[in-house]
Design a protein around this nucleic acid. Structure first.
Lengths: 239, 239
DNA sequence: TCAAAAGTGTTGCTCCTACACCCATGC
DNA sequence: GCATGGGTGTAGGAGCAACACTTTTGA
């Protein structure tokens, strides 16, 4: 992955010495990322506390301005890494928000993404930035900066609706997992409990996972078979 | 609908006298629209022949630069009206294309939309613009400018996949329509023939349309009952 | 009377749902 | 031996797919 070297907060604090001029006014373009994970049996989102105005002190999504020669997805990944230390997660474009008044500084178009992480990978960095990063359960979000609450809500809807017809859920689990863990991901995202036998039958009938041969031996109970995705490289549309 | 008054081609031909400057380089932002309709039993797309470089003479999607105080959707509707004379169609954001090299002039981010029109409304204007506009069957597209072929392909995928779980198909029909017309829309989009009895049962069971009481009396055959959507104002997610 | 599209039911099969008990382990 | 989660099968119902003939009209 190629990363541009640049100050890493989402705000630009050190204006360069020359200016960039155009015949017509141009909006600024940013990317923002809704990074989901499951922590303590709750769907959670990673947020950053803003260190600069506007909305100073409020919580916001990780994101920032697009470099002029940088792909949109690259920008989203770079900002996520710089601001939170997270990388290697599944990431997908969500929607583009462009209300003329969404940012008080200037016209800002935000191309938003959502990303999914295993609880594993999560070392939201106590990083170089002074910026505070923290996980919040989706039902206990603080007030968010700009229109970020709308973005989170849309991302959640998209994630949940993709559960039904893609293999996206596996992106929230480690490579090898038990069926109970998988069921738990579905239950938390759908916010309803599922029948264990039917869930297992349904998943196995789709032929998208197979046994690893290994067992998970944690807790005072029978070890669980572990599984892995047959085609691990992508989120596929199934059935 | 509020429309900005501005030269109406997608290229900016008359630079203004003053310049717009920023501390950091800003990309240009455009919207592009894939307008679908069904003509002569084929899914078709409205294209414009470019009058200026780059890609002069090639066919392209209607679209153009975002005004600095204009909403993204408003921009898409405005460009569609200006370039093609089409208005009042169903329009929905599709995806944002931002490859750094997608436009040779400067960095251009394109927020794309797709739109659906009844064959009815179609007076693709022999307009003020010199620009030629024409419908092309989706399987007989000419070579398209920029990355517009990718955009059309993605729009088609999205449209087809939304057929199954929304009422989007009705946007391609007049207010009142026969079940055969509706079935024809599904068959053309899905590119497969459907069983008449099963189709009718399925549609009626969803309780989204009702009889108007009127009959369509065209052709040498039994008149057909006409129907209309119960909730005409929106595309809903069903079942 | 003919051509052309409208309209209409039943049957079998598949898939989904509901439901309860034994198993293997650590303490 | 007990607490904890892992693992398994069946029966009934709902919804989908396959299938052909009669009706109404205009020419």
């Amino acid at each position: 992955m190629i990363l541009a070297i640049q100050a890493s907060t989402s705000d630009r604090v050190m204006p360069p010495t020359h200016r960039h001029c155009y015949d017509y006014p141009h909006p600024a373009v940013t990317t923002d990322v809704v990074l989901f994970t499951i922590r303590q049996d709750a769907l959670s989102v990673l947020l950053i506390q803003r260190g600069n105005p506007p909305c100073q002190g409020m919580w916001a999504l990780p994101g920032g301005f697009l470099n002029i020669d940088e792909d949109l997805e690259t920008c989203a990944k770079r900002e996520l890494l710089e601001e939170t230390g997270v990388e290697g997660v599944y990431l997908e474009q969500l929607y583009t928000f462009g209300d003329p008044k969404r940012d008080p500084r200037e016209r800002v178009i935000s191309v938003t993404f959502y990303a999914l992480s295993q609880s594993d990978l999560l070392t939201p960095k106590a990083s170089s930035d002074a910026a505070l990063t923290a996980w919040f359960a989706i039902n206990q979000l603080p007030e968010l900066a700009f229109d970020h609450a709308d973005i989170v809500q849309l991302a959640r809807q998209r994630l949940v609706s993709k559960l039904g017809y893609t293999t996206i859920a596996f992106q929230m689990l480690p490579k090898s997992f038990t069926l109970s863990q998988l069921q738990s991901v579905y239950e938390i995202l759908l916010n309803e409990s599922l029948d264990k036998r039917n869930f297992r039958k349904g998943i196995l009938a789709r032929n998208i996972i197979k046994e690893t041969g290994e067992y998970s031996r944690i807790g005072n109970h029978r070890p669980a078979k572990t599984y892995r995705v047959i085609n691990p490289s992508q989120v596929e549309i199934i059935k």
